[in-house]
């Protein structure tokens, strides 16, 4: 039993190793232009430096003198970068400044260049169908308007979050306002539709008069009812 007691590890300090990825930034002169680029980058991708340790490579800026380096480091800190180390500069350069205690001999190896995420493309506001919509095809675009340059065939359907514009003949179905609601409208160059709808209201072909057949028509939702009116 005594032997066992001797081999168990003594209680005390527990240390574990862990590796993180730090971002290494290399400021360049002129500093004003470099900071302008950095600010632009931060506007596009605010999370780029969030919770990331940052190492500043001073190799290209140390030559500018102590004052410039201090301004540079303060500038980075005020932009929220968490500086954990420095490299590329003689430690004596920062003697006396509070940056002096930062390690200057960190070990690590470079990994692939970190690309800042590309700015997100603006969401598609409308969809253009540059031709006819054939029977059996279904065009669904829930976030905006749909414009069809050709005809919408019998047995085809077009469903839009906003309004629908059909420059040819509308022979199939058109449902508008899935997202926009009652404010959406349907326009067609020639009215031969099987069914039209806005939001939750719909009408089939037998419910509107033959007088509109073949004419350019607009369909809108007015106080809880669909109104079809000729545009010519």
């Amino acid at each position: 039993m005594t032997l066992h007691a001797q081999t168990s590890p003594p209680p005390g300090l527990q240390l574990r190793g862990r590796s993180f990825m730090a971002l290494v930034v290399t400021p360049e002169v002129p500093l004003a232009a470099w900071f302008a680029d950095l600010d632009a980058q931060l506007r596009n991708a605010a999370g780029l430096f969030a919770d990331r340790p940052v190492v500043v490579d001073l190799s290209r800026t140390a030559g500018e003198g102590r004052e410039a380096v201090l301004i540079l480091l303060d500038g980075l800190e005020t932009r929220g970068l968490r500086i954990v180390g420095l490299e590329g500069a003689d430690p004596s350069l920062l003697a006396g400044a509070h940056w002096e205690r930062l390690p200057t001999q960190l070990h690590g190896r470079d990994v692939a260049e970190v690309r800042s995420p590309a700015p997100k493309p603006a969401p598609e506001a409308s969809r253009l169908i540059d031709g006819p919509v054939r029977s059996g095809q279904s065009v669904v675009f829930e976030t905006g308007d749909i414009t069809v340059i050709g005809a919408v065939a019998s047995g085809a359907e077009v469903i839009a979050g906003g309004s629908i514009h059909v420059y040819g003949a509308l022979r199939g179905r058109a449902i508008a306002g899935v997202r926009l609601g009652a404010a959406a409208r349907i326009f067609c160059g020639r009215m031969e539709a099987e069914m039209v709808g806005i939001e939750r209201l719909y009408r089939t072909a037998e419910n509107w008069g033959a007088s509109l057949h073949g004419r350019p028509v607009q369909i809108r939702s007015d106080r809880g009812a669909l109104r079809l009116s000729a545009l010519d």
Binding site: R134, G136, S154, G155, A156
Partner: peptide
């Protein structure tokens, strides 16, 4: 005739996709 034309339209859509 209408039924044949509509089916043909469907087939053209498939040819295009």
């Amino acid at each position: 005739e209408v039924s044949s034309v509509r089916d043909a339209d469907r087939i053209i859509g498939m040819l295009d996709s």
